[in-house]
């Protein structure tokens, strides 16, 4: 299934979002413009704007506010990515050099801070304080998730609860905010807002689990970064947590690597990454993702009959089954 074909109904609005993001980033003084455009050109699925636009279809006909909200969400996502790359010391994202790699860490940090402020500013013109309340809560949770992630780094004794709480804060809440804010900005009813938020949340959880699976199973070319980057960077994600529970050899290898990630034989951990990618832990992780996907589809069923439900269902399934 091609995502573009499924999204044909919102293509004009998505083009508008893309065009406006370009306008916003290119309007800045040269270096901010260079770094922001560099981020933008790296592409991405733009799933946050997609969910804002699709959720808004349940409310009043297309409004300017919805486009602004969609742009703000994507800008906030971009700002968080550029900071993530500094934290992970990443050199490549989506096959392109990261801002911190091409320029330096300061440029990446200050560009991220600038984009964040610009994104929040975009919502200022909209006469709806709830948008800020939802978004500021989400961004705050996002930062809590990031701190937890760093604290948990190179820590072997992590349970599933910690993992799920982390991905909720790190990913799911921003996608939940996308559907919620899309619904708020198009004046959906309170019940519709709640159900669309739930849908976004469950999709967000499934999406991050799939992302974590693909980090073990996709190729470097498909990922646009080295296979197993999460584990190499000390992040224990669902497939690794499940593998550790099932397999002493994985436990021992990861434990040794986490104890001394600089000196340990890198070939051994790469072999472990390869082994996890072919283990039953992957099937178990897919089962978790499917469970969240089912919950998302159930939330969708509670929404009023609307042609866009079919599109949301297709996207949910696409994101839950994607290969990269």
């Amino acid at each position: 299934m091609k995502l573009a074909a499924t999204l044909s109904s919102i293509k004009p609005e998505m083009d508008q979002v893309e065009r406006k993001i370009k306008e916003i980033t290119s309007a800045e003084p040269s270096m901010i413009s260079h770094t922001s455009s560099h981020l933008l050109e790296a592409g991405g699925k733009r799933i946050r704007p997609v969910f804002v636009l699709l959720a808004s279809k349940f409310g009043a006909p297309m409004q300017k506010d919805v486009i602004e909200v969609a742009i703000a969400l994507e800008l906030i996502h971009m700002a968080s990515l550029v900071h993530d790359d500094v934290i992970d010391r990443a050199t490549i994202r989506r096959g392109k050099p990261t801002v911190n790699n091409r320029w330096d860490n300061g440029t990446a940090m200050f560009t991220g801070d600038f984009i964040f402020a610009r994104a929040v500013e975009l919502l200022q013109n909209l006469d709806e304080p709830r948008l800020h309340q939802v978004l500021s809560h989400t961004i705050h949770q996002l930062t809590l998730g990031e701190i937890e992630q760093l604290k948990d780094r190179y820590m072997i004794g992590q349970n599933l609860f910690r993992y799920f709480r982390r991905i909720k804060r790190k990913t799911a809440l921003l996608i939940a905010s996308s559907t919620e804010l899309g619904a708020i900005s198009s004046q959906c009813s309170d019940e519709e807002i709640i159900q669309l938020k739930r849908f976004g949340y469950y999709i967000g959880m499934a999406y991050q689990i799939i992302d974590d699976i693909l980090d073990f199973t996709a190729s470097e070319k498909e990922l646009g970064k080295p296979v197993g980057s999460d584990l190499l960077n000390g992040h224990l994600t669902l497939p690794a947590i499940l593998a550790i529970q099932n397999d002493d050899a994985s436990l021992s290898s990861i434990e040794s690597y986490f104890k001394d990630p600089t000196a340990y034989n890198r070939e051994q951990i790469i072999q472990t990454i390869h082994d996890i990618g072919r283990s039953s832990a992957i099937d178990e992780a897919y089962a978790w993702s499917d469970a969240y996907l089912d919950r998302a589809l159930n939330a969708l069923e509670t929404l009023p009959s609307h042609p866009i439900k079919k599109t949301l269902r297709k996207i949910a399934i696409y994101l839950g089954k994607r290969k990269y």
Partner: peptide, 8 residues
């Protein structure tokens, strides 16, 4: 933040 990037 503009100023910081400009200085760099």
């Amino acid at each position: 933040n503009r100023t910081k990037v400009e200085l760099l």
